[in-house]
Simulated assay, not measured.
Amino acid sequence: MLQIWKAFNKYFWLNAEQRQVIHRKQLNGTHSAEQWLTLLSKLADFDELAGKARSKLGAWMTALGFLLFFSGCSATFFAEFFPRRSPILPLTFTGIGVGLVLILIMGLINRYLRRRDLHDSLRYFVVPLLVVLKEETKAQEPIQLFVALNSRRNKKHIVNIFQRPPKKKPHPFWWWASVVFTILTVMVYSSLFLDGFRARLFPEFMYFVPVMLSVMLWFITAIIYSETGPYPNTRTTVYQQLWFELSTRLHDHTRLRMAITDITQERRRQRRNPRNKVKTKTKFKTRTQAVVTLLPSLARYRLNAELLQSPTDLRIQTRERDTRAVIQLRQSYKQEGLDTSPPLQMVLHLIGQGYRRLA
């Protein structure tokens, strides 16, 4: 209960702009690093408290549901052993009713907090990055920022759908043919032990033919049945969203631009078990593509020709334009799961690699 109280207390102390961010699930504006931290720190605290409160609510609802189910079954089973006017049964069913009301209330609170849930990248990526930029930019230097705080699994961001139709069950001819031919082969070889029967059959070198044909039939049968696979139906949905953009100027008057895109792959597989029930398995894979662009002034820096060759895990493009050099760095990062947050170290590594190309 303490976590729920803290979450609601934190939400009610938010101002109108912060509540608007929660309802829109989006950040878009221009402020200094200190102003952004003032705005987002309370949002990050509320999101953390709301996440803990939701986990507590889920555990309480599950435990209370099992308790009510056990109490109802016990009261129904032992009802005939109690006297007619015994207050135990009315009290038991009254407690069950109160428990159902509590589950309903906790469900409504959980729904209220879930609708105000923000993406974890706000706490684990955006706020720590702004803390770093606060030290690397001037006090009143504007930072243009765009962050999408919604779930990456959104119908608006579907870019492709791959549908593999259910595979047909192979015809049983190959299986029965393999079994029958194997039985015939065994019968032919068993005839070698019968006196006088060997002379009336094929020559000795022909006895290898049934064995070879039997092996070939079993090999073909194994290939046909292996192609069916355990999952007769597979659907792959690809989501792509540009969720982070930043533009600012550092202490040395170098312009910094960042853009991060998440490409989420949802693979949904269905199969039918021996009890004729359809089982579904869903897996998510996320590939984060980060692009960092540095525009240093040629009056202060020049491109280092010795270090222009990029490492194996990066793609770097460099050129000179008017009074500035352009260094663009790209890197991809793969993670398992949905709504993952990219590591801050990845972006800092890109910025460091960009400065290594300067002299």
Rank of each mutant, 00 (worst) to 15 (best):
M1C: 07
L2N: 10
Q3D: 13
W5H: 12
K6R: 15
F8S: 07
N9C: 08
Q20N: 13
Q26E: 10
H31G: 03
A44N: 03
D45R: 10
R54D: 10
M61Q: 14
M61A: 10
F78P: 01
I88T: 11
F93H: 05
F93T: 07
F93D: 04
T94M: 11
G95C: 13
G99T: 02
L100I: 07
V101F: 12
L102E: 03
I103A: 00
M106K: 04
D117E: 11
F125V: 05
L133V: 05
Q140F: 13
Q140H: 13
E141I: 09
L149I: 01
S151T: 10
R152V: 03
I158N: 01
V159I: 15
I161E: 08
I161P: 01
R164T: 14
K167Y: 05
H171W: 07
W175Y: 12
W176V: 03
F181K: 01
L184E: 08
M187F: 15
S191W: 06
S191V: 07
L194P: 03
F197W: 15
L201F: 15
L201E: 05
V209A: 14
V209M: 11
V215T: 13
W218E: 02
W218R: 07
F219T: 14
Y225S: 04
T228G: 02
G229R: 01
P230S: 09
P232C: 03
R235P: 01
L246A: 07
L250R: 07
H251C: 10
T254Y: 04
R257V: 05
I260C: 07
R267E: 14
Q270R: 13
N273Q: 02
R275Q: 11
K277I: 11
F284R: 06
K285P: 00
T288Q: 12
L294N: 08
S297N: 12
S297I: 06
R302S: 12
L308A: 08
I316A: 02
Q317A: 09
E320M: 05
Q328H: 13
L329T: 06
S332T: 07
Y333T: 05
G337R: 00
D339M: 02
T340P: 00
P343E: 11
L348T: 05
L348P: 02
H349S: 13
Q353E: 15
G354N: 09
R357F: 09
